[in-house]
């Protein structure tokens, strides 16, 4: 018994290590790349022995990219700011719209309710590129091309269905009688929603918000087509590293490290909610 359990422990640690190595290797490798010049990265055979430099990071932060062909202006920090702005605002808007909607879908059975909810989900099925071409024409006519508002609007295609469906499942798990008990004690519908329902669904809302944030942050095509350089997020901005004189691997790697930091930090912070929220609400919903 004792023996088999220690063997089990050993096997488990080995398995966990393998999984960790498999998933962390690319990140570690990119981190190492970000500390090297293009020459050391591209030397053959590859080696992990090198003198670390932080030039890639300073180039990104100061916006001066020096290549063999000369100096180039970079607006990586502007891209970074755009990413934060677009993701935060999109998720915030999605929460404001999606949480009450999720509540309505969970609590009230109305005509076409299911169909509307499904239609919203189906936004996720359509290939983004297919949607984008007609959308870009509309955006031109409406004057929304290359505006934050226009981008935040299309980002709802990503965030809203996610939040709606995860949070809905969460609301459905809360017994309506818990709300009824509060309402009958003299509280309005709205007060009950804000004081009882939302706090109880908080883990689900946090998980959905975080996922939506990650999806919004990682989005590429919407901003590529609907915005130009000054409004584009890091995902699109990274294209600038593909220059006439070659691909700036070191800077791309540094850009990746900087750009995954916010989502990574957020995910680590909200890990507890994420696991709880996704395993409880979404599965049942």
């Amino acid at each position: 018994m004792d023996h088999s359990s220690s063997l089990e422990k050993l096997l488990r640690s080995v398995a966990i290590t393998l999984v960790l190595v498999f998933f962390l290797f690319p990140i570690v490798w990119i981190f190492l790349m970000s500390l090297q010049t293009n020459e050391t990265i591209l030397r053959i055979p590859p080696s992990i022995a090198f003198t670390p430099i932080i030039d890639n990071y300073t180039a990104l932060i100061t916006g001066q990219l020096r290549t063999a062909a000369g100096s180039l202006q970079l607006n990586f920090m502007q891209n970074m700011f755009n990413s934060v702005l677009l993701s935060v605002c999109s998720v915030a808007l999605s929460l404001v719209l999606g949480v009450p909607a999720a509540y309505a879908f969970a609590r009230f059975k109305f005509r076409l309710g299911e169909d509307i909810a499904f239609t919203l989900l189906s936004f996720r099925f359509a290939p983004a590129l297919l949607v984008l071409l007609p959308l870009s024409l509309y955006f031109k006519t409406l004057g929304l091309t290359n505006t934050y508002i226009g981008l935040i609007w299309v980002y709802q295609l990503i965030c809203l269905p996610l939040i709606l469906w995860i949070v809905r499942g969460y609301f459905e798990d809360i017994s309506p009688d818990i709300e009824h008990a509060y309402r009958i004690a003299g509280n309005s519908w709205w007060r009950t929603f804000t004081r009882i329902s939302i706090p109880l669904a908080k883990p689900g809302i946090a998980a959905a918000g975080l996922l939506a944030f990650i999806f919004a942050w990682n989005n590429f095509v919407f901003a590529l087509i609907l915005a130009s350089a000054d409004k584009q997020p890091v995902t699109v901005g990274a294209l600038a590293f593909v220059t006439a004189s070659g691909i700036q691997y070191g800077q791309i790697a540094a850009a990746i490290i900087i750009s995954i930091t916010p989502t990574l930090a957020l995910a680590l912070y909200a890990q507890r909610y994420l696991v709880e929220g996704l395993s409880m609400g979404a599965v049942k919903g």
Partner: peptide
């Protein structure tokens, strides 16, 4: 009327206490 305005108290079949 909405429940809050009816002046009625109720004990629920499934208790429905507020967990937090």
């Amino acid at each position: 009327l909405p429940p809050a305005a009816r002046g009625v108290a109720m004990a629920f079949e499934a208790y429905s206490l507020y967990p937090p």
